[in-house]
Design a protein around this nucleic acid. Structure first.
Lengths: 342, 342
DNA sequence: TGTTAGCACTCTATTTAGTTGAGTGCTAAT
DNA sequence: ATTAGCACTCAACTAAATAGAGTGCTAACA
């Protein structure tokens, strides 16, 4: 059904279109790529490839462009990975090792580097807080009216909301409460904590109920807010380098899709398997992403998701480049995670 | 030199151009605005206004558009402030009072609201950390390998970098060090702290030098990094609503100007006087901002700058609207600041 | 003297028609 | 099975024509 020559032709079309963003014609193919057959033969094969859905014509008698199905075949079957240059490797390694302490920062910096290296837009997503378990909680008085709550989860995330108090309290109380909460809530899924707390309150902490009453809801309210902001973007303006976004409306709707965050976050966090995941154009469920491709790396340790790192661009994406770079980057990142959060 | 009619005409031109973004002609003016004179008369006056530099012609025999000088006269002399609607007032008040604890958040949320209400891009800037004085420092152990440093400045900012340790240490040490640092560094400008520390180290903290040696440089390095990110943007995509950014290159360069951050931050933080400040087009020193106007509110308490809030848009900005809203917003924000950081 | 109607002129924006060129599909020859 | 040849298609570009909004100037008017 797809003999070797047709595969070669398809590959050439994809390569050329990724490079030029222009529909590819039979003459170009025969001249530019060493296919050993005449344009007429290529035309016949192209007609077949079109019938099978791997390429399409933007309009009658134009050249062909790859379809999403075509890209899919390409990335699955005959995409060749490149060796990424030593320079890029060094960049990744050095920057990552130097800059980093918190899990969010690992993702944030990786994302930044990735966008610099690939010239696409990258997104880093941290896992939903409520799905993790509490590992450590501590209340630290800042001044007479503010308390800092430090929460550490089993997946290594640290949240540090500041809570404002209506009345003043002494330091010692906080230590007591802090220790108590720590004892009782260790290992508890954050999602369940608020309800659990009500019970605890009424039983054990009667003496401090006025304080706890005030602080706990505040903590979890502010966690909710912080939670909505757990995406880091880099290179958003890179899309202006691609001719597909020369149309102001296209650019606008893409940027607004990014700004929306919710949909994109759903899309990215739907990839649960550790490793790389490619989703192409129409494979994305949201219509806003129908002419984008996403390459997403999911990071896990012991079945706990630590975060996602995603490169997003037009379906005409340099898949082989991006995948190569991301694979390489993932080595470092996984190492970092394993060293620090195992 | 500028009789009343000419002022009226100028005002009408500005109003119309702000509304339509199209050059305004004499016929339009005479029909749409109740000037009581014929187009020919208006034409004569317009010629005078042009000679004085308040309006210009994009090309021969087109209508007129206001110049930066024209806008300046308008905002200084005869711009009328609007009463902002109760709805908007409520929105501001409710959201701000509900959402807020930290100083950064006050600015961030105000900025968000402001962009929603005005439909322009807004920027919030927090003051340079190094210019403030340290009010409180505390080291909080998170786990055996990480310490949280909490720093509070006299201007109410709280920074919370997490420091990773190479070797493990016991809790008690931190409390001692923490207390010690707190004693010694209180009231010191953050800029000077690093050098001061070296001395302290060598004198008093010999017992803990290995820990302090490791932690202190890390703290201030991470402060530097955090410092670079002290701008919050909202409504950046609003520029797509303005025809002046229909050109993809214009939009791109504007967005890249925002992403650059440094220039814009310089521009905004150059406004030192408490209250509102309007800078129009060519009045902005950077060429990237030559066709933008900025309306900037500087917030101060006791001569300490707490932050800036800026609305940025095309020179054809709805000055009177924006100024009205910002004036109203500033009331709330100042109240909040005064209640919390005085 | 200030205001206005009239008119020729200017310049952009839009429409229309014509041209070019890359690329196709089909047919017939190899 | 492959290829040369050819008629055909369609977007993209170019050039010319047209419309329309607006001006400046002049002369008349109150």
């Amino acid at each position: 059904m797809l003999n070797e020559r047709k595969l070669k032709i398809l590959q050439a079309i994809i390569r050329d279109y990724i490079e030029t963003a222009e529909p590819v014609g039979s003459r170009t193919l025969s001249k530019k790529y060493d296919l050993g057959v005449s344009p007429a033969t290529i035309r016949n094969d192209m007609a077949d490839l079109e019938e099978l859905g791997y390429i399409t014509q933007p309009y009658t008698s134009s050249g062909r462009i790859p379809s999403d199905k075509g890209y899919r075949l390409y990335v699955d079957q005959f995409m060749s990975l490149k060796k990424i240059s030593d320079f890029k490797k060094d960049l990744l390694e050095l920057e990552l090792l130097n800059k980093i302490s918190e899990i969010e920062q690992i993702l944030q910096y990786s994302s930044k580097l990735l966008s610099q290296i690939t010239n696409y837009t990258t997104v880093a997503v941290t896992p939903q807080l409520k799905e993790s378990k509490l590992k450590h909680i501590q209340l630290v008085p800042i001044d007479s009216e503010n308390v800092l709550a430090v929460l550490v989860t089993d997946s290594g995330m640290v949240k540090k909301p500041i809570i404002r108090l209506d009345h003043k309290v002494t330091d010692s109380n906080f230590e007591t409460i802090s220790n108590y909460l720590n004892d009782k809530l260790y290992g508890m899924p954050i999602e369940n904590i608020e309800e659990s707390l009500v019970e605890i309150l009424n039983n054990d902490l009667k003496d401090f109920s006025s304080i706890v009453d005030e602080i706990i809801p505040e903590i979890f309210q502010s966690l909710d807010e912080i939670n909505n902001l757990d995406m880091f973007f880099n290179g958003t303006m890179n899309i202006f380098n691609f001719p597909e976004y020369n149309d102001i409306l296209k650019a606008k709707s893409f940027l607004e899709f990014l700004e929306e965050k919710q949909l994109l976050s759903n899309l990215i966090t739907s990839f649960n398997n550790e490793g790389l995941n490619i989703s192409i154009g129409s494979e994305n469920v949201y219509k806003e992403a129908k002419d984008c491709s996403l390459i997403t790396a999911t990071y896990k340790i012991d079945n706990k998701t630590l975060g996602w790192l995603s490169v997003i661009g037009p379906t005409r994406m340099e898949y082989s480049n991006v995948v190569s770079v991301m694979a390489e980057a993932s080595k470092f990142i996984n190492d970092l995670f394993k060293n620090r959060y195992r």
